[in-house]
C-alpha cells in the first residue's frame, strides 16, 4: 500500500512537470531562449575541447596570421596577435558566465535576506534602515556607481565583480521586501506566530519558500544584464585585463582596428547580444509560467 501511494505522488509530480513544460514550450520565443542559453553554456563548459585553437585564449602570438579576415581556417578571423577570435569567444563565454554566476551567488542571498527581514519587520526602525540604504543605492545610476568603484580600485576581473555586486543587491531586497510584506499578513504566517515559531523559522521556512519562484525568475533575467554591465566595464578598461578573453575587452580591443578589421569587434559584440537575448527570452518564459501558477 505504501508503495502505491508513493507511485501515485511521483506520477502526480511527473504530470505537473509535463504540464509546465507544455505551457513553457507553447511560446516559441521561450524555446529560442532556452536553446541559446544551452548553446552558450555548452560552449563555455567545453571551451578547451570545442575551440578550434584552444591556445588562443591567453598569451599566445602567431605573427603569420595577424588580423586575418574570416576564412575557412579561422571562421571569425584572427586578432592583432594572430589569435583565433572564435576560440576566444568560447573562452569569453566562460569568463562572462563565471562572473555572472559569482555575482549572483553573492548578491541574491544577501539582497533577499535583507529584504525579508525589512519586510517582516515593516514599520519598525529595522525596515527604515535597510530600505533607506537600499533606496540610496537604487538612486545612483548603476553604471556610474560601478565605474566610480572600479576606478577607485585597481581594475581587475575580481574588482569589477565586486562593483557590480554592490549595485545589484538592492533589486533583490526590493523584490523580497514586497513579497514579505504581502505574505506577513497571510493567515499561515499569523498561525505560525500564534504557535510560537521563532522568527528565523517564520522568515526562512514560512516566507522564503514562497519568494523563491519570483527570485529565480529575476535571476534568469539578470544574468543577461550582469553580463552587459561586466562587458561595459571591461570595454572602458575597468574590468578584466588582457590577455583574459572577456567579451567586453575583446570588443574594446577591436575598436582600435575599426572599421578595416571589423571582425575583431563585431563577432564578440554579437556573442554578447546573443547571450543576453537568450537569458532574457528564457527569463520571460519562466516568468509567464510562474505568473499563471500564482493566479
Amino acid at each position: 500500500m505504501n508503495e502505491t501511494r508513493f507511485r501515485f505522488l511521483n506520477e502526480e509530480r511527473k504530470r505537473e512537470l509535463v504540464k509546465n513544460w507544455r505551457k513553457f514550450s507553447s511560446n516559441p520565443l521561450s524555446i529560442v531562449g532556452l536553446i541559446s542559453v544551452l548553446i552558450v553554456l555548452f560552449l563555455a563548459i567545453f571551451a578547451p575541447w570545442v575551440a578550434p585553437y584552444p591556445q588562443s585564449w591567453g598569451r599566445w602570438v602567431d605573427f603569420n596570421n595577424v588580423l586575418k579576415p574570416p576564412s575557412w581556417t579561422n571562421w571569425m578571423g584572427t586578432d592583432n596577435f594572430g589569435r583565433d577570435i572564435m576560440s576566444r569567444i568560447f573562452f569569453g563565454f566562460r569568463y562572462d558566465l563565471m562572473m555572472a554566476a559569482a555575482i549572483l551567488v553573492m548578491v541574491v542571498p544577501l539582497g533577499t535576506i535583507l529584504g525579508l527581514i525589512a519586510g517582516y519587520f515593516s514599520g519598525t526602525f529595522i525596515d527604515t534602515i535597510i530600505m533607506r540604504v537600499t533606496d540610496v543605492f537604487l538612486a545612483i545610476p548603476s553604471l556610474v556607481l560601478a565605474l566610480a568603484i572600479c576606478s577607485l580600485l585597481e581594475p581587475s576581473l575580481f574588482n569589477s565583480m565586486m562593483a557590480v555586486s554592490v549595485l545589484w543587491w538592492p533589486w533583490y531586497s526590493r523584490l523580497s521586501y514586497g513579497i514579505a510584506i504581502s505574505l506577513k499578513n497571510e493567515y499561515f504566517v499569523q498561525a505560525s506566530e500564534l504557535i510560537g515559531a521563532s522568527t528565523p523559522h517564520i522568515l526562512f521556512r514560512e516566507i522564503l519558500p514562497n519568494c523563491l519562484s519570483p527570485i529565480f525568475t529575476k535571476m534568469t533575467l539578470d544574468v543577461g544584464w550582469v553580463i552587459l554591465i561586466g562587458a561595459s566595464l571591461a570595454f572602458v578598461g575597468l574590468g578584466a585585463q588582457e590577455p583574459i578573453p572577456a567579451l567586453g575587452n575583446m570588443v574594446s580591443a577591436g575598436t582600435k582596428y575599426m572599421p578595416d578589421y571589423w571582425w575583431m569587434t563585431i563577432f564578440p559584440a554579437i556573442a554578447i547580444a546573443f547571450t543576453i537575448l537568450g537569458f532574457n527570452l528564457l527569463g520571460d518564459g519562466i516568468r509567464d509560467l510562474l505568473a499563471v501558477e500564482e493566479v
Binding site: E186, Y187, Q190, S192
Partner: peptide, 16 residues
C-alpha cells in the same frame, strides 16, 4: 501560545 490557538476564516491562505 501552547495553550491558546486560533482557526482562521479562509482555509486557503491559512496553510503555507
Amino acid at each position: 501560545k501552547k495553550d491558546m490557538q486560533m482557526v482562521f476564516q479562509d482555509p486557503g491562505s491559512s496553510l503555507n
